[in-house]
Design a protein around this nucleic acid. Structure first.
Length: 251
DNA sequence: AATTCAGCCAACCGCCCGTCA
DNA sequence: GTGACGGGCGGTTGGCTGAAT
C-alpha cells in the first residue's frame, strides 16, 4: 500500500557518523531523553534518518555500553542462548549487560560460528555435524542438554501459566531455530536458563528478574505483568521462576 | 613497496508489530 | 474496525584495516 518513507532520503546523510554528529545526538538525548526518533534529527539539527539516529545511539553512543572483547564466559553464554533462542539477537543481548544485539550478531557471524565448526558442531542446530547430516528427515529441533552448572545469577521469568499466550507455530523452518516444534508444542515448555556471566552489574539487583515477555512474543500488556511486579517490589508478583533442570534433562 | 585478500564491524534496509486516532 | 505511524528487529551490505603474497 506504500508507506511514507521514514525520512526524506535526499536530505539525509548516510554512512559513517562524524564526531560532530555524535556530539549533537548525545547532547540532544542528554537534554531531552530518548524517544520520538522520527522528529529527533530535526530537533537535534542532524541531517540523519531517525532510524539511523536510534541505531547510532543504541549500538554505539549509549553510556552503558561495554566495549572490548568478549570473554570466554560471554562466548559460552551466547552459544547456549543461541541454541535455545536461535537468531533472536535482541533477546540474547538482553542477557549480556552492555552488549548490543548488533554487536552479538556480528560476533556470532565472525567468531562463534567458526568456533562451533571447529568443535564439529553445526552453528544452526548446535548438533554434531554428522548428526545434522543424519537428521535430514524432519525431527524435533536439537535437544540441548543444559549442564547443571553454577547457580544462576540471572534468571528468566515468564508469565504464570494462566497468563501465557499460545506459542505461535512456525510451519516452515529449515534451520531448527524456531520457537515451536512441528507438532505445535512449545519448544521450551519448561524453560530454565541457567545463565550467568560473572558478577552482576552494580546496578543490576541479583534478585530482580529479567522480563523476556516482550522478546518472547508476549507483547500484549495482559500477557505480561512485569510492571505490576516491578511496582510490587519485585517479590514475584507476576513472575514464576522455573526450577533448574535435572542433569541430562532436555529441553 | 604494491597489490590482493579476508575479516571485522558500523550502518542500512525492509519487514513486522503495537499503538493510537 | 481500520489504516497510518513509530519503534524495533534480523538480515545484509559496504568500507576499513591488517595480513598475506
Amino acid at each position: 500500500m506504500g508507506r511514507s518513507p521514514c525520512c526524506e532520503k535526499e536530505h539525509t546523510n548516510k554512512g559513517a557518523w562524524t564526531k560532530e554528529e555524535d556530539q549533537r545526538l548525545i547532547a540532544y538525548i542528554r537534554a531531552n531523553g530518548e524517544g520520538c526518533w522520527r522528529s529527533l534529527p530535526k530537533a537535534a539539527g542532524l541531517l540523519r534518518c531517525g532510524k539511523s539516529c536510534r541505531l547510532r545511539w543504541m549500538n554505539y553512543l549509549r553510556p552503558d555500553l561495554k566495549r572490548g572483547n568478549f570473554t570466554d564466559d560471554e562466548d559460552e553464554l551466547i552459544i547456549r542462548l543461541h541454541s535455545l533462542l536461535g537468531n533472536k539477537w535482541s533477546l540474547i543481548a538482553g542477557q549480556l549487560p552492555g552488549r548490543t544485539d548488533n554487536e552479538i550478531k556480528n560476533y556470532w557471524n565472525t567468531h562463534i560460528k567458526r568456533k562451533l565448526l571447529s568443535r564439529g558442531m553445526d552453528p544452526h542446530t548446535h548438533r554434531p555435524l554428522t548428526a545434522v547430516i543424519d537428521a535430514a528427515a524432519p525431527t524435533r529441533p536439537a535437544q540441548i542438554a543444559v549442564p547443571a552448572r553454577a547457580a544462576p545469577t540471572t534468571m528468566f521469568a515468564l508469565p504464570t501459566k494462566q497468563q501465557q499466550p499460545p506459542v505461535p507455530v512456525e510451519s516452515s523452518d529449515d534451520d531448527g531455530s524456531s520457537g515451536a516444534t512441528s507438532t505445535g508444542e512449545p519448544r521450551c515448555p519448561d524453560l530454565n536458563l541457567d545463565l550467568s556471566v560473572g558478577p552482576p552489574a552494580a546496578d543490576t539487583p541479583t534478585s530482580h528478574p529479567v522480563c523476556l515477555c516482550r522478546h518472547l512474543g508476549f507483547r500484549g500488556g495482559e500477557a505480561c505483568s512485569c510492571r505490576q511486579a516491578d511496582s510490587a517490589g519485585s517479590q514475584g508478583g507476576g513472575f514464576r521462576y522455573f526450577r533448574p533442570l535435572e542433569e541430562d534433562q532436555y529441553i
